[in-house]
Design a protein around this nucleic acid. Structure first.
Ligand SMILES: [Mn+2]
Ligand SMILES: [Mn+2]
Ligand SMILES: [Zn+2]
Ligand SMILES: [Zn+2]
Lengths: 124, 124
DNA sequence: CGCCGTTTTGCAAGTGATTCGCAGAACAAG
DNA sequence: CTTGTTCTGCGAATCACTTGCAAAACGGCG
């Protein structure tokens, strides 16, 4: 694990929420070039240390967000007002995936799921 | 409803699967400029005649896919081999959304969900 | 119909996120 | 050290998408 990759992985691990490439760059500063950050993110995802999903939001446009991979993958809620993410805990779709595989004769290897709306704070 | 918007909506309606802007353009030909297609897609989504989600796939990269809105929204399976979409039927997350709203004190106004893997044909 | 304010469109240029080419730096053996 | 492989910085390029702007189409209404 090179210094750049380590820095990117640390950034993901220490973040409480999914980070975009820009978010990672903001956190690690000038440790390496942005191209290296993108390459590190691809590397981490390919080797299973990170996961990602693409989210479109009004303020930040379309960006890919990365999370350090844990034991079991989580899903997230994105607040359209404060733009924070809330961890919704581990995936609850296991049952549904199995069911869909049988029902539609497909092999589901992954899925993307996230919710958006207003968080408790912003709703007040 | 202008001619361009009608053409785009027709393209979405007649498609059996979600279409990217490029997909729409391929189907309607030279009826209008691509900027108009993008504007029409935004318009249709804003006015509730279409829905979209962003999907990243190895072959086509990151693109936004649009579907003509029906009575109830559906979710889709994307085959990573033939790149076709399979309609998985109406959303089955109603229960889960309610549960998450209570559990995490959030207001869920929308969610993005899709599955990917290998379709029956490609698995053989 | 003819006039005028509002929308929509085409065209071309601009954005923003992400990727690539390439040459030099860092590594890993031998 | 020597040499083959991987990784990195830098700058340019891509790709999906958006925008500015002037012309075209539309929608009353007198
Ligand atoms: Mn956001
Ligand atoms: Mn695909
Ligand atoms: Zn919030
Ligand atoms: Zn297939």
């Amino acid at each position: 694990m090179t210094r750049a990759r380590k820095a990117v992985l640390d950034a993901l691990r220490s973040a409480e929420e999914p980070l975009s490439a820009a978010g990672v760059i903001a956190r690690i500063g000038d440790i390496c070039d942005q191209a290296t950050v993108y390459r590190a993110l691809s590397y981490l995802e390919e080797t299973g240390s990170a996961e990602s999903f693409v989210l479109h939001c009004a303020r930040d446009g379309t960006e890919r967000y990365y999370i350090a991979a844990g034991e079991r993958h989580h899903h997230w809620f994105h607040c359209e007002s404060c733009h924070r993410f809330i961890d919704l805990g581990v995936c609850r779709l296991g049952r549904l995936c199995d069911q869909l595989e049988r029902e539609f004769d497909v092999r589901v290897t992954e899925h993307t799921l996230y919710f958006s709306g207003l968080c408790g704070d912003c709703r007040k």
